[in-house]
Design a protein around this nucleic acid. Sequence first.
DNA 1: CTGAAAGCGCTAACAG
DNA 2: CTGTTAGCGCTTTCAG
Lengths: 360, 360
Amino acid sequence: VQDWETIVTSMSNEPGVARRSRPTMKDVATLAGVGIKTVSRVINGEPNVSDATIDRVMRAANILDYQLDVYAGNLRRTDRRTQTIGLLVGNVANPFSGALHRAVEDATHDLGYAVISASLHDDSEREQRLVREFLRRRVDGLVLTTISRSQAYLLAEQERGTPMVFVDREPRGIDADSVVSANVAGASSATAHLVAHGHRSIACLGDRNEISTARLRVRGFLDEIGRAGIPSSEAHIVADLDDEAKSYAAVITLLDHPHPPTALFTAQNLVTIGAVRALRDRGREHDIALVGFDDIALADLVVPGVTVVAQDPEQIGRRAAERLLARIDGAQFPVESIHVPTTLIARGSGEIRPAHRSGG
Amino acid sequence: VQDWETIVTSMSNEPGVARRSRPTMKDVATLAGVGIKTVSRVINGEPNVSDATIDRVMRAANILDYQLDVYAGNLRRTDRRTQTIGLLVGNVANPFSGALHRAVEDATHDLGYAVISASLHDDSEREQRLVREFLRRRVDGLVLTTISRSQAYLLAEQERGTPMVFVDREPRGIDADSVVSANVAGASSATAHLVAHGHRSIACLGDRNEISTARLRVRGFLDEIGRAGIPSSEAHIVADLDDEAKSYAAVITLLDHPHPPTALFTAQNLVTIGAVRALRDRGREHDIALVGFDDIALADLVVPGVTVVAQDPEQIGRRAAERLLARIDGAQFPVESIHVPTTLIARGSGEIRPAHRSGG
DNA sequence: CTGAAAGCGCTAACAG
DNA sequence: CTGTTAGCGCTTTCAG
């Protein structure tokens, strides 16, 4: 061992220079007195190395605090795996994105994958820039939430064999796996719930129409309005509410109208929160019904409890990750679009009945 | 252009094989009819290339859908930059972590950095495994939330020049930058707020004692209890509540006691939520005061509103990222521990006064 | 069971 | 303004 210390010392940079350089396999090989390929075998857990050699190599690696360079190895490796996946979510600070992220992490962590994550912020250029950054880092697969009109820019990458699974929103211009909520069915069930409680004047407030899920939720709403035989003139639709403030303002406007709707269907979590605040500020939270799409934190503790159609971001993330991992492993099953069901959770706000109007 | 198509076709793999291989700089160089170094110059935006050549190269790169391999380049580059940073947060699904993550992403995105993120889950072994995975991917810097007794395992890495900034919790066994909330001061102010509203029997409910911030918040609580001249026998301390269910159960136990405290200080966001639910379920939310550490979503819409000492995860993340970027750029300022102030937000629950007791 | 040589995709250092 | 050569840290291939 004393010999080793001498070697280690002699390997350090010029005296006086504090920064010691990062050890390579060659350094470990020199210290252990073996060839570089033997170090590679030990570090990667390959067979056909004697126990004594393994021990020598591991001791040397520990002394030097050696860390394999994943990407350097990947360069020569035939399968070109970086053990890294790229995850694009709506916004890492949004609870839906967080739950999705968590599920992807859980499904991939034990297999040694690292996750490069980024926020889309519903910006088309940003989407493409971020995907490009993932690709420049040679991720083994992509889990993507998108906003661009078309994902055809990924066709060449797909042809090259990079697995990709789209989450939350289905892709366009490319045929690839996707895992999304049952948006139409979920929006329908929310609307049906309000209709069942006697409402005929219902407003639907949603996100930017550019977003496919926003459009699908409006469709589900209108489907149900039609089924209930409600004239479309009774169905107010407000779109392009992409943050809480806009939602709040829109709901205030509705409430201040001479004939406000008796119920609201808010088609996105931030829109729901804006609506709850507006109802509260106008003191109408107990007489105007509300059902939101996507669950929100503490919804059961607000008064009245906020009725929602809950999505299942954990399941979306888990199934997307499983699918991606199978593709990375070379599985050849057909492309599929998986729809994850939503769940209506009644908590009070959605069960408010309309006040009897004298006329009109 | 027709010549190019011929070349492209001839470069594709054997006919019948769908999977076209990923183009390299050499492929782009061949197609553009220039040397590989010229391609490198164009792709990296280096000077001294004629406009005509730039155009030829860019056209070839676009035809082939060429994407630079960041890590292959890094291998030879003198500064060894991967333009990637490693971020370890408590739990990507926790709002505090999400806000922190968002701030780090915002501060680094425009500079071309990618963020590899992972969840600590307050598991010491997991911490070290994840940090190792970051290092194996040669991140340019680390932003870390930790739980291990000591971070001395990072000393060699630090000596090697890898910048690291600790967030939320200060490191031990290593001298490095950190950005944390003013935990003691924040807990004191929460406690002082309750004392100022007439409480003398206050319970402090917190996370696992193993976690440094949990200990600091208890210290802040006890400091204030002492300053107020309250005998420590009046100060109930319940620790090791690391999820909402445990917190709920602990609060139920307290409330069912013959002489429950008149006020609660919950020292972590999930603990606060568990307490709110327990108070509600026992119908005591209007007569037992509550102040939480760390803000929670919709706290203002719950009845009564939940008074909290809010942390500032955005600022923590932003300052940590700024510090890290400066270090990556070679800045040599001294190691610092930055304490980010907290803000007391009164919403109702913390302003409840104790009921007058008949005796003792 | 072990090691030497070649080369992955790229950039540094030079030479034109 | 452009190209050639060497070599980053590793794995592959193949020879012991």
